[in-house]
Amino acid sequence: MPIGAGSSLHYLVGPAIAFAVLGLLALFMRWAFGTGSAPTASPPADDGLLTRIATLSQREAALALRAVLSDAGIRSTIRFPAAHRADVLVFPEDAERARTLAASFAPPE
Rank of each mutant, 00 (worst) to 15 (best):
F28R: 15
I74Q: 04
T100Q: 12
P44R: 15
V13Q: 05
F91A: 15
Y11S: 03
H10G: 08
S57H: 08
S104E: 08
A18W: 13
R52N: 06
F91R: 15
I74F: 02
P108L: 01
G14L: 14
E96T: 13
L9S: 08
G6S: 13
T35V: 09
G34S: 06
L69F: 02
P44K: 15
R66V: 00
A32R: 15
I53K: 04
P92S: 08
D94Q: 07
P107V: 02
A54T: 02
A41L: 15
I17D: 04
L27V: 11
I74E: 01
T55M: 12
L65C: 00
R85Y: 01
P15D: 01
A103C: 03
V88S: 03
P44F: 13
A102W: 01
A86Q: 06
E93L: 11
D94P: 04
L22I: 12
S42M: 13
R97G: 04
R52S: 05
P81K: 11
A95P: 07
V88E: 03
E60L: 06
S104Y: 00
W31M: 09
T77C: 10
G48A: 10
P2T: 10
R66H: 05
E109F: 07
P108V: 01
A54K: 05
A72F: 00
L24Y: 10
R30P: 02
A20M: 14
R97Q: 12
